[in-house]
Design a protein around this nucleic acid. Structure first.
Lengths: 345, 345
DNA sequence: GCCTACAATGGGACCGGTTCCATACGAAGG
DNA sequence: CCTTCGTATGGAACCGGTCCCATTGTAGGC
C-alpha cells in the first residue's frame, strides 16, 4: 500500500532515480545495484503507483471504448476483441455503454474534455458531424469499428459487398421477388451498416432486372419481435416475396418466426438470409454472411496502438473480408424442396 | 490541454487554493471571487486533470468490473446494470473480461496489487479461496454479483428457491419423472448458481417422493449445443423424463432443439423450464424463472459505493426476489394438450 | 476605539512517480 | 601520472491537483 519508490531507494541504499531506472528496465544500471534494488522491491512488496506514473508521464495507459451493447450481439463480439487486444497490450479498457440518446449525448459531449484516456475506440456507432468535430478538435487518437466517417481511421466490414453476396445467392437460386429487412435509419443510435447492405442488395437486383418496391423494403427497430412484425406484413402481401434478405441474424430469426406462424416452410416456401453468422445462425440453420467480428476489434486496437506510437496509420479505411455461409434457410423458389447441394457460388 | 489550475488562478488574480475551492464547490468563497474564477475557467476552457486529482486525493474514481462475458447473456445484462449505476455515480468502469483460465489467473493475481481502482465488482464468477484471500488482504472494497463467498458482500438471486419454483411447477402439473440439466461444476470458470438450482429441485422432488437418478441429472459446458446433446441422451433413455428443468434459458433452448429433432412436441410430450427470463425465453414461449439481472448490477454498485463511503454495508448477503413465469413450454404430462391456464401457484 | 473571532484568501508542502543535470568514479590513452 | 571520456548514480525539479496553515481584513462586542 503505502510503500513508495523512496522507501525502496532507502532500503537499497540508492537514489530514487536509480530505482526508477530499474523499474523501467533502462540501461546503464550496474547489475549489482539492480539486484539490490530488485531485492528491496521484493522485500517491501512494492508496487508502483499507476496514478503517479500517469501524472508524470502524461499518459494514462487507458483506452475508452464506446459501444452500444444491448442492441446487438455483434457489438458485444466486437467489444470482446477490443478488450482482448487491449489487455494483451497492457492497456486498460474504460467502457461507456450507450443505449439512450441522452447517454450518448452526455458521453460524447463530456468525453473528449477529459484527459483520462490515451485513445478512443467507438464500436458500431457512427458519430454525428459535431461529435466528430469535438473528437478531432480534442486530438484524441480514435478508431472506429463498424462505423463510418471520412476523416477517422476505421475498421469496417464490406457491407455493400455483403448485401451483394446475399442477393446474388438468392437470385442465383432463381428468386425474382425478393425483400430486404433491416434497421430503421433515423434514430439517435442508427447503425449505418444496414443501409449499406441494402445498397448492395439493390445494385445486384438492378443488374438482374429485379425491382425492389418500397413494400418489400422493411426497416424498423433492431429486434427479433419487430422483424417478425415487418416480415408478417410483407408475407401477407398479395404477391409476397419468395426470399427475404436481412441485415442481421437477429432479424432473420424474427423472419423465421413469422414464417412459422404463417405456416410457411423454410426454405421450401421462403428463403431467408441473415448477417453476422452468430451462434444463433448455426442453430437455426440460417444462410448468412460471415464477418470477423472479434477480429475487427483486435484490428482496431492494433491500429490505435500504432496511432499512439505516432506511426502513420496507413489507409484510413480498412475493410475486412466477408463470406457467404450457406445453410438450410435458402433454396430455389416455388417449393422445389430438393435436397440442397452447396451451390458453386 | 495544457491549461492548469495555476493558469486559471493567474488569470482570475487569485491563488491556486481558491480555484480548487471553487472547483470543488467548497464553502467560504466570496461570490464575486467565485464568479471571477468561473469566468477564467470558461475563458481558458480549463478542464481539471483527473490524474493529478487522483494522485492528490489518493482515490481513482474508478471501479474494476470482472465479468465472464461471452459465456452468458445473463452476465452481460448484469454488467449493463453495473455500468449504468457506476456512470450515474460518476465512476468509471474498468472492464476485465474473463474467458479462459489463464486470463482469470492473470487478472486475479495481478489485480489487487494495483492501486488503480477504488473498488471491485465481480460478476457471475465465484472466486477461489486463495483469490478471496488476496482480495481481502489487499483491502480492496469488493462486491460480488451472482457469486458466493461467506466473507464478501454479495448480491445474489435465490437460486435454491428458483430451483424449487421450477420443480414445484412441473410437479404440480403432474410430472413424476423429471430431469435437471445444468452447468458442469468443475471448471475454472464454474458458475455456482447451477448447483444451487439443482439443490432446490432436489429438495422439492424429495418432498414429493420423486427420485432424481444420475442419468436424469446432466451437466456440461454452458452452451445450447451441449445442452441439446445432453437432452438427446436423456430423452433416448428407456424411460425418458417428461419434464426437464434447466439451469438457464440458453440450455432450455438446446433442449427444445433436441426435442424437435426427436419429434417430441413441447409441451405435449415434454415440459421444459429455463432460467433468467431472457428475451429468448419470450420468443420461445419458455416457462422460466425471472430474476432482476440488470437490477442486481445496480444494487451491487449501490452497496459498493456505500462501502467506499465507509458506511457499514449491512448484511453481507443480499438476496433478490425471483418469480416463475409460465409460458407455453410446460403442461401436464402424457399428451394432455389442454389449453394452458395460468395455474394458481 | 480596541480586541476578538471568523470569513476569505495566498501559497507551501505534498501525493509518487519520471527526467535531467551535475557529480563521482574508473578505465583507457598519451 | 595526468587527462579524457563514458558509465553509474544521487537528487532537484516537475507533472497538476488538494490540503492546511498563516495572513489579511472586517464585522461585532465591550
Amino acid at each position: 500500500m503505502g510503500v513508495t519508490i523512496g522507501d525502496v531507494a532507502r532500503l537499497a541504499g540508492v537514489g530514487r532515480g536509480t530505482v526508477s531506472r530499474v523499474l523501467n528496465d533502462r540501461a546503464n544500471v550496474d547489475p549489482a545495484t539492480r539486484a539490490r534494488v530488485l531485492a528491496a522491491i521484493k522485500e517491501l512488496d512494492f508496487v508502483p503507483s499507476q496514478t503517479a506514473r500517469r501524472l508524470s508521464l502524461r499518459r494514462t495507459q487507458t483506452v475508452a471504448v464506446i459501444v452500444p451493447f444491448l442492441s446487438r450481439p455483434s457489438a458485444i463480439e466486437r467489444f470482446r476483441g477490443v478488450e482482448h487486444a487491449l489487455a494483451a497490450a497492457g492497456y486498460d479498457a474504460l467502457v461507456f455503454n450507450i443505449e439512450t440518446a441522452e447517454r450518448r449525448e452526455a458521453v460524447f459531449l463530456e468525453f473528449p474534455r477529459r484527459e483520462r484516456v490515451d485513445g478512443l475506440i467507438i464500436v458500431s456507432l457512427s458519430p454525428h458531424p459535431f461529435e466528430i468535430e469535438r473528437i478531432v478538435r480534442s486530438r484524441l487518437p480514435t478508431v472506429l469499428v463498424d462505423a463510418h466517417h471520412r476523416s477517422l481511421p476505421r475498421v469496417v466490414g464490406n457491407d455493400v459487398m455483403g448485401g451483394r453476396l446475399a442477393a446474388q445467392h438468392v437470385i442465383g437460386l432463381g428468386h425474382r421477388r425478393l425483400a430486404f429487412l433491416g434497421d430503421y435509419a433515423r434514430t439517435a443510435l442508427a447503425f449505418t451498416s444496414s443501409r449499406l447492405r441494402l445498397t448492395g442488395v439493390r445494385s445486384v437486383a438492378k443488374a438482374a432486372g429485379i425491382r425492389l418496391p418500397p413494400s418489400l423494403v422493411g426497416t424498423g427497430e433492431h429486434s427479433r419481435r419487430r422483424a417478425a412484425e415487418l416480415a408478417t406484413r410483407m408475407l401477407s402481401l398479395p404477391v409476397p416475396p419468395t426470399a427475404i434478405v436481412c441485415a442481421s441474424d437477429t432479424q432473420a430469426a424474427g423472419v423465421l418466426e413469422a414464417a412459422d406462424h404463417l405456416g410457411l416452410r423454410v426454405p421450401a416456401d421462403l428463403s431467408v438470409t441473415g448477417y453476422d453468422d452468430l451462434e444463433l445462425a448455426d442453430h437455426l440453420g440460417l444462410t448468412t454472411i460471415h464477418q470477423p467480428l472479434f477480429e475487427s476489434g483486435v484490428r482496431a486496437v492494433e491500429r490505435l496502438l500504432r496511432l499512439l506510437d505516432g506511426v502513420p496509420a496507413g489507409p484510413l479505411r480498412e475493410v475486412q473480408d466477408i463470406s457467404l455461409v450457406v445453410r438450410r434457410s435458402t433454396a430455389p423458389p416455388g417449393g422445389l424442396a430438393l435436397k440442397q447441394e452447396p451451390a458453386a457460388s
